[in-house]
Structure formats: C-alpha cells, structure tokens
Design a protein around this nucleic acid. Structure first.
Ligand code: SF4
Ligand code: SF4
Lengths: 159, 159
DNA sequence: GGATGTCGCACTGTTTTGGTGCTATTTCGG
DNA sequence: CCGAAATAGCACCAAAACAGTGCGACATCC
C-alpha cells in the first residue's frame, strides 16, 4: 500500500528519542516505557538498526543503544533500508535488507515481461526519485519537527 | 514495503495499452492475450478503474473499455488511488479507495500517541510530497517512455 | 437467441506484517 | 563470584493484506 511498516515507525521514534539523548546509552526499557510500543518488538527493531550500523549497542547491565553517528548523517533512506529493505516500486528485483534477518524466500520474481514492459523504465525512474527524497530526509530534520524541504517543483499540467 | 501492488501494475499496463489505442474500445481479452496477466484479475482491475471513472466501459458484444479522458489528464496518483486507496506513509488515518470495492475493515487505526508523536508531522509532509510526485506523473508520460521530471532539488547535508 | 462482453460480489490460498518465546551471552555492581 | 540487567539470536505464531478464482447476472451485437 505504499506505506511504511510499524517496525519502521517504531524505529523512527526510537531513533528520535535516541537523538535527543545525544550520545548517551539508552536501554530499550526506557524507550518502551515512554511510548506504547511492545517492548519486545522494539528490541527487535533496535537490533536490526544495530546490524545496519545506524546505532551502536553496548551489552551487559547498564548497557543500551546510542546513535552510531550524528543525526545529520542518518537518513530516512538508510533507516527504511535497514528495516524493510531497499524500497522498490515495481515488482521486478527483490533486494533484501542490509543485515541478515529477512528470509529472502521468494527468489522467483522473474516477471515474464521484463523485456517488453512499457511501464518498467518510468517506474524505475520514479523509484530513483523516491529514494532520493528519502535520502534527503535526515534524522535531524525529523527531530527538529519541521524540515523536509526537497523542493519538488511542480511542472506539466498545472491547473 | 513501499511498493505498489500487482493490481496497480496491471492497471498501468492496461492503461498504457488503452492509451495507444486512442479512444477505441478494447476488450479485456485483447489485453490479456498480449501480456501474461491472469485475464480474470485484469478484468477486476479494469472494473475498479471504471468505477473511478478513469476509463469508460461499454457492455455487450463488441464492448470493452476506453480511456475516459486524454492520457495527459490521467495521473499516476489517480490510478494508485483508484486501485489501492490514497497512499499513506504513516499509520494514522486509513482512507478507502474511491469506488466501493475495498472492505474498509480496520477502522481502529487510532494510534494512541497521535498527540505527542514527534514523527507524525514530518511523515505527513513527506506524504504530501509523494502525492505531489504521483500527481505530476501523467499516463501520457508513462506512455512515451521517458519523462517524469518532477525536479526535486537536492538541499541540506550535501556532502 | 447465442456469442461475446462487462458487472458484482464472495470466496480461497499465499505472503507479509506484527508480535511473542525462549535461551544464550555480555557486563556491571556488590 | 554471583546475580541482575541488558543485548543477541532465532524460531515460532496470529492476523492482515494481496493475488487470484468462481459463478451467476446483465447488456449488446449479429
Ligand atoms: S516487468 Fe513491468 S510488470 Fe513485470 S514487474 Fe517489472 S514493471 Fe512490473
Ligand atoms: S501517531 Fe506517530 S506513530 Fe502513531 S501512527 Fe501516526 S505517526 Fe505513526
């Protein structure tokens, strides 16, 4: 449905919270206590984020997570990729997330009409734009509330 | 996964094919014979498209479908909306497609933290941009192969 | 009146998503 | 040294969305 998953939303929330804390170690418990998110699932999300090296983890008591780099250097694109794989618009090619978690079962995905498909190229181009958009949205911009200003300039059939 | 459904792809293919035929009546059979799409499902798609008034239908023998307006006046946004509902990025608010086909079950969707959600606003803004992007892509631009030039202008954290 | 179409809607099988269980391992604090 | 508190890994389950089908009705041309 062209919609990001709950996992991604949870991840976003966690990351924003994490960003607020600066470089401090934050436990899953702390985040889970503040937002109505199943702690267990949240933990899973953080793990994925750690695998993608967007956050650093520290095990043991007093352990937790912290951002792996400044919020300005973490993009929505990276987050989405870590949590649900590279975004695709069409159904040709299936890329698995960064880490290792996803099953990568359906290896069929060989749409029989890739050769003569009229809509394939335009769709891919659309995808590029979408990715670009995600890439321009940093965690910092989410954090400060406002932002996201990738000016897309209206064109063609205006009125 | 931020990916459009097969139904939408089928719809796109059908519409492009339809656009090529100008204003002629084209039967589901004709399209189904040219592309490896389950005819039955294709029929379902065309019906949805008709409900959304993107195509006109003519019943009876020699009947079929034709574009309801010039290809330049049909946007990807309208197509997606007809086939899978208004695109959403976050999980608050669920809008049903135009017509009547979709079940519209999940009416819960009351995310408990709408009041104090930090990521909600930015996500909504992102959604607006996405919709704008879809709205700027016309069927004509898909048909001619090239196109899609909603200049999004890079900005913020460049290097 | 029959062939060829669309219409409508319900129904089923598969895949993805959302969420949980359980056990191991790491680390701190006393 | 021991136990509490935390992450790591991985498998499992339930519910929802998606992909596809069945079938009977209605419309139109010949
Ligand atoms: S080939 Fe055309 S139809 Fe098949 S998946 Fe790629 S885009 Fe969709
Ligand atoms: S409120 Fe925040 S978390 Fe809840 S759905 Fe809207 S965006 Fe996602």
């Amino acid at each position: 449905m062209l919609q990001l998953t709950k996992k991604t939303e949870y991840g976003l929330i966690a990351l924003v919270h994490l960003a607020d804390r600066g470089g401090e170690l934050v436990s899953v418990r702390e985040i889970g206590d503040r937002y109505p998110i199943p702690k267990r699932l949240l933990a899973e999300v953080l793990k994925d984020l750690a695998r993608a090296e967007l956050v650093q983890s520290q095990r043991g008591a007093t352990g937790g997570y912290s951002l792996a780099r400044p919020a300005e250097a973490i993009t929505l694109g990276q987050i989405v990729e870590a949590l649900e794989g590279r975004p695709q618009v069409s159904n040709c090619e299936t890329s698995v997330p960064h880490g290792s978690a996803l099953p990568a079962t359906t290896r069929h995905s060989e749409c029989e009409m890739q050769g003569f498909c009229r809509i394939r190229a335009p769709l891919h181009r659309l995808r590029e734009h979408l990715i670009e958009m995600l890439e321009q949205t940093t965690l910092a911009s989410l954090q400060t509330g406002q932002a996201i200003d990738h000016n897309l300039r209206p064109r063609a059939q205006a009125s």
